[in-house]
């Protein structure tokens, strides 16, 4: 008998004794059910508390200039690795003084600054949702030192349950190969329980939050 038949047979034989427990429909906590301005404000608050930075940008066209300015403030060079999302490649990066790089090898992406879009932002936890696709090499959110995610305010969803339909749509009626809820830069607490940032993934996650209401959402109440 194959291992599969063996294991499934054993499980089937143990059945019957147990009562029929109905599967509950999981409830959605209030933290994952915010609407409108409250949703946006909670996303910003939680993303910042996870160690992200957020730069508000009024409109998509202004993204390259905002990025160039933000990198300048951090004394970072304007060499960026842009993924292939049409909404990003269509923008005027050179005009903003940035140099684009298109190499995609593991060594090429190691330690650089990557600029990508995102599937969504999650107000429940402050995470940025990344997915693999033809236009987004998944490693671009993992190997670089700095990951810049361009996120529109209308992409922010309330709870985890809201991600699944978006992901299925993006993957052609099924989930994409890889889907990550990235809650801030990589970190570890493995030595003496002390939190240290930049364990294996990017050392910083910088969100360019695009939309007219972005700036107001970041202002402290």
């Amino acid at each position: 008998m194959s291992a599969r038949e063996d294991i499934l047979g054993k499980i089937a034989r143990s059945r019957g004794a147990s009562a029929g427990t109905a599967k509950p429909a999981p409830l959605r906590p209030a933290l994952g059910a915010k609407e409108g301005a409250a949703r946006l404000a909670q996303f910003c608050h939680l993303a910042l508390s996870l160690g992200c930075t957020i730069v508000p940008v009024r409109e998509m066209r202004a993204v390259p200039a905002s990025l160039a300015h933000a990198l300048g403030e951090q004394s970072l060079k304007g060499d960026v690795w842009l993924n292939d999302e049409p909404q990003l490649t269509a923008l005027g990066w050179q005009e903003a003084g940035l140099s684009l790089h298109s190499e995609r090898g593991k060594d090429d992406l190691d330690g650089v600054i990557s600029v990508t879009g995102a599937l969504a932002g999650l107000a429940e936890t402050g995470a940025v949702i990344m997915q693999s696709s033809a236009v987004h090499p998944f490693a671009m959110g993992l190997l670089p030192d700095v990951h810049v995610a361009v996120l529109r305010t209308d992409q922010i969803v309330a709870g985890m349950e809201d991600i699944w339909p978006l992901a299925r749509k993006a993957g052609g009626n099924r989930l994409p190969r890889a889907l990550s809820l990235v809650g801030g830069p990589s970190r570890t607490g493995d030595i003496e329980a002390t939190l240290v940032m930049g364990a294996h993934g990017p050392r910083s996650l910088q969100i360019l939050l695009v939309g007219e209401e972005a700036e107001a959402a970041l202002e402290p109440n």
């Binding site: 995470a127 693999s132 033809a134 994409p176 890889a178 990550s180 809650g183 801030g184």
Partner: peptide
Amino acid sequence: RVLPRSATGQDTANYLSLYSGPRREGDADG
């Protein structure tokens, strides 16, 4: 929602990920 809060008291872990198969046709990596 339950696991990171119970494990380390975090509201979320930094990477909550789903993997659903090998590299797809047209995928840039994987």
